[in-house]
Each structure stands twice: as structure tokens, then as C-alpha cells.
Design a protein around this nucleic acid. Sequence first.
RNA 1: GUGCCCAUAGCUCAGCUGGUAGAGCGCUGGAUUGUGGUUCCAGUGGCCGUGGGUUCAAAUCCCACUGGGCACCCCA
Length: 417
Amino acid sequence: MIRAVKGTRDILPPSSAVWNHVESVAREVFRAYNYDEIRTPVFEETQLFARGVGADTDIVTKEMYTFDDRGESLTLRPENTASVIRAYIEHRLDQLPGVCKLYYIGPMFRRERPQKGRYRQFSQIGAEAIGSDSPATDAEVIEMVTEILTRCGLSGFEIYVNSVGCPDCRPKFVEALKQRLVDVAPGLCADCQRRATANPLRVLDCKIPHDQPAIETLPSILDHLCPACSSHFEQVRMFLTDRAIPFQVKPRLVRGLDSYMRTTFEFAHGALGAQNSVLGGGRYDGLAEELGSKVHAPGIGFSIGEDRLVLSLEEAAPGAHRDPLQIYIAPMGGAALRHCAGLAHELRRAGVRVELGPSAKLKRNMETANKLGARYALLVGDNETGAGVYALKEMSSGEQRNLDRAQLLETFRSPSL
RNA sequence: GUGCCCAUAGCUCAGCUGGUAGAGCGCUGGAUUGUGGUUCCAGUGGCCGUGGGUUCAAAUCCCACUGGGCACCCCA
């Protein structure tokens, strides 16, 4: 038997309805914040990601689906920011007035070991605001993403923000951290001892309870920000407070892409287990130049893990967003079967969700109507077609009443039915 | 990529220290030829994840592989 490949999966009903819900909510919110959609290719030149994501990140060194296309190295996109910036440069979108605000929804690919909330093909809903380095933009982006999650029906998520400094101040902090770790590291877990030299920032993200007291004593990047970064972060916090966003400053938040500078943020949800990050984002003021732009194009963006968002929503409210069948038409007899085709078409044009029984056996049709969860069954036989009335039966109560065609359409014109 | 756990019918699972499989739900039909749900009866269902090994005999024990879960790593 041929099965979906490891780390990929089929989105089946009723889950697909939740996906559609999430996507339509996101599009509404993006519209309200004046974002427009961009659709970039699913694969790009490998170099784009090597430079845009960071040549020595895990994503680039071991997680990319890279293939040779007759001498050209191509890669399935592991994330979308690099592609959006590439398109921004290629099409000179910097020439457009105002901040360039773009959103995307689509699949990304990373060859990781699959587990709950982590798949090799996964979907991200993301956005980029390019052309502004204002802290007000950061705050608006964070407000917008909060709005998306809230309007999707998610609650109980935590908002973490941090500043990781700039190419000016971050290296100095890393150096200070390294020196401090020479003394502290021997008392930490084995992983942290390894990280102390390999990737000191990761020590800050350690989750081992035993290590926490020692980690608390390590220097905070927020004390090492240069004046410009410090002021920027202060304003981000101020604007977030103005907007009543319940954020927490997490100086130990060191996740994200290599190109992140200054503001970074992450939203976490408890129902997700170890992969508890439902979205991540940050500012990348040097990325466009890194990708060859002649003009300075500071930007900030985020991406929501759509799979994880759907997972959280389904855990909180199983069975939500169903769109129940409204009418099951049960024809009785060959003449009625033919008569019902036109009737069904008319109802469907009026926006009613209709299933037309494919055969003329009443009992069988009623059974099916019940199993499909139809709100109403419409019984159509010789009595009904002759008199021009139909018997509408409410399935839950068993009540039945006779309606002519006009009354029937009028009844279902109201969207609540 | 590493470690631990798991894999039996469409689904949820039982199957004792080895003797070649069961339940509930579902699905199909009937009791009920113009009325579903409840009930009753019958039927449908499985290369026991795949391949190898031990054995007279393997769903059961051993190994490998594949897939899944959790943790690490990392990230969305």
C-alpha cells in the first residue's frame, strides 16, 4: 500500500473546516491591517536560503530538501521570509508608497524528525512589513498577530518579547556571556556545558529546573544593548502597553533566524507539548542587503505554525466549525427523483447546503439523512409533486409540515437555518 | 541525527507462561414496500506494520526495517 510519506499527512474533514476557518480569519485580519497577499514559488535557488536564513543554522545545514535540477541547486522553501524579500528586491517594491505589507499562507518543508506539532511539510501563515524600522511597526505587527489568534478562538497563549540587539552590541554580549560561563558552566547540565562554548546563547534557553538558579545569575542581553537598540526596545514596550497587549519580556528568548536583530517575539501555548511555540517572529533590518538589495529595507515579520494553531484549537474545542447539512431531499419514486433535481438546484443556488438522495427508497434515504446529521429531510413523492407541496421534516423533533416551493425557499433564506 | 515507548478489523482495544484471532462501535441486509433515531436478528470484516530468526508450532520470544508517540536537538 502506498502511504503518505513520513512527516506529511492528509488534512481530512472535519479538520479541514478548522483549517479553512483559521485561514479566513487570518485573511480578514490582514485586510483590516492593510496587508495584501503575496504568493512566492515553493522552491528557490538554494543560495537564497543559505544567505537569508543563515549558513550555519540547523535549517540550512541539515533540514533542507535540496535537489539538483540539471546543474542548478534548488531547495524546497523551509520558510518564506527570504522569498518575500527576494521578491521585494526583484520587483522593486521599495518604489511603492508607504510600508510594504505582505502576507502569505502556504506549505514549508524541513526534513526533521516528525512529532506532534512538527511535520516535514507544514503550513505557515505569515506576514512581513518592509520599509519601516519604527518600533510602532513592531507593536502593530504584534497586535495584529494577537488579533488573529484571538479571533480564531485561541486563548491561554503567552506573548514573549525580547531584543537581541544588533551587529554592533550582540557580539559584545556574547563575549561577556562566554566569559561568565567559564565559571558557571561546570555546575550546569551536560547539554549546557557543551553549549557554553558551542552556542552560549542557547544556555539561556535551558529548561532544566536544576540549572535555573545559576542561569538567573548570567548576564542579560538587555543590559548590554547599545543606546539605539535599548531605546528602540523601550519604545516597542511602550507601544505594546498602549495597545493593552499582555506581553512578557523574556531576555532569554534566543530563538529564531540568524538574521533577526532587535525585536524578537514568540507566542506559546501549553496544549502543544514540547513544540509549544505557535508562532515566532522578529525584525531583520539587514536581511535585504544580505540578499543583494541596493536600498536599505528594514523589516519585521512573523509566521504562525498553522498546524500547531489548528492542533490547539481542536484540543480546546473539538468538533467546532462544523457546517451541518441543512436539507436531505428524499425522493420517492422515479418521477419524484427527476422532479427533485430542479428543486435541489434551486435551493443550492439560494445558498442552502443540500444533499439529494440518489435513489428513490424512502427508508434508506431517511437512514442516510439521519446519519449525515441533516437538520431537515424533505420528502417528495407523488402526493407532494401532484399537490405542489413538500413535506419538510425536522429531524431532531420529528415534526413535519407541508410547504410549497415558494414557502420552502423563503424558509431557508434565513442563514440561521 | 540521538534516546525511550508503541504497532492486532474502518475506529477504540482484548488476546495469560508460544498451540495459526475476539469484543464494542462502524458498515451492509432484515424485522418495518411513504418516514430516520431506540430495540432485536443476521451478515461484512484482519498476510496480527514489513522482512528475517528461534521453534514441531509465533499475534505472542529475538533481530532488523518502516511508521507513530514522547523527550533531546531545533523550530512554526
